[in-house]
Design a binder for these strands. Sequence first.
DNA 1: GGGTGCAGTGCAACTAGTTGCATAGCCCTA
DNA 2: TAGGGCTATGCAACTAGTTGCACTGCACCC
Lengths: 181, 181
Amino acid sequence: MALEHAILVSLDERSGSGYELAQRFEKSIGFFWAATHQQIYRTLKRMVGLGWVSCHEVAQDGRPDKKVYEVAEAGREELARWLAAPGEPETIRHDLSVKVRGASSGDAKALIGEVARHRDLHAERLDVYLAIEKKDFPDPSALSGRPLHQYLVLRGGIRAERALVEWCDEVLAAMREDDRR
Amino acid sequence: MALEHAILVSLDERSGSGYELAQRFEKSIGFFWAATHQQIYRTLKRMVGLGWVSCHEVAQDGRPDKKVYEVAEAGREELARWLAAPGEPETIRHDLSVKVRGASSGDAKALIGEVARHRDLHAERLDVYLAIEKKDFPDPSALSGRPLHQYLVLRGGIRAERALVEWCDEVLAAMREDDRR
DNA sequence: GGGTGCAGTGCAACTAGTTGCATAGCCCTA
DNA sequence: TAGGGCTATGCAACTAGTTGCACTGCACCC
């Protein structure tokens, strides 16, 4: 599983609490690896047991105490091992494709609405990604090391969302045309 | 969950046994919804309980008996309901992106090899999809109804794999360039 | 007659992910 | 001062998915 590794990557960029990690998973990291705070807390606990991360409590004023985690030596080794290890492409689970494939078994009109809704959601996400690209990476050719890698992952998100928007448009055009006939 | 619905879609196209379904999930349906035979057998059992599918045993000669499942009335209703119901875009879990993002924490060279391997895997899949497109859908503009929907899903697969291949190429070019400097 | 391989079904144990809820301190506003 | 919202952590119960194995039957080939 890669949640542990996603957490290692995130903590290696910057140490933080479970809560902070959960927020990162809501935005940047979560663009390509989703996780709830429950999963994160549970996994952090396990990782402490494995010796991959260390944890110390930090008292704060004005807000509750927090536990700050940082990557330990064993965690760094595990991360390096995992990075070099071959992995299989993710198993795909795409709801909307199942629905499109099943369209003939239901109300095609209602499905058109659903596809249009997804189209807009993906277009929105695409806009978010493009805005980040513009703001944080104005000159990609100058990038190197960690910022380059972050940029490349963002590029993956942009490509994926764009492909989805275009696919939805293709589906909508074809199904509307088919509906008219 | 959508495995039940993926099975309904598949059985609605053609009734069959768990074993046959597992094979369909290996190829066509599995391109966008992965499932093992274990999951399928277990889910079929549950669906019989729900009254969504009916099951009858068929004796065969030359091979073991099988249980053939077909969609029942309640299953058809459920499928129609689900098709029209709004759903959220899938939560993304993309291993390779996590690795790329973590590249600075390990051996970037080894990761280049891994990205190249994935690039080839996706290129292979893309070729498979393109071959199916050419063979089964030589004249897309003439399509309507079920074949159209199947074609559109295939188009989604083509777009997704192409986007992945192109992204891998972008990553490889940038990381190799960065490595040279 | 023994091995391989495919068709066919399934259990058991495990790992991973989701959902609902609980708790607790502090801030701000109506 | 009561309620809503944010930070912060966590349990319990559930659903979903994976992995390893076990069994049957037949066909085919060496």
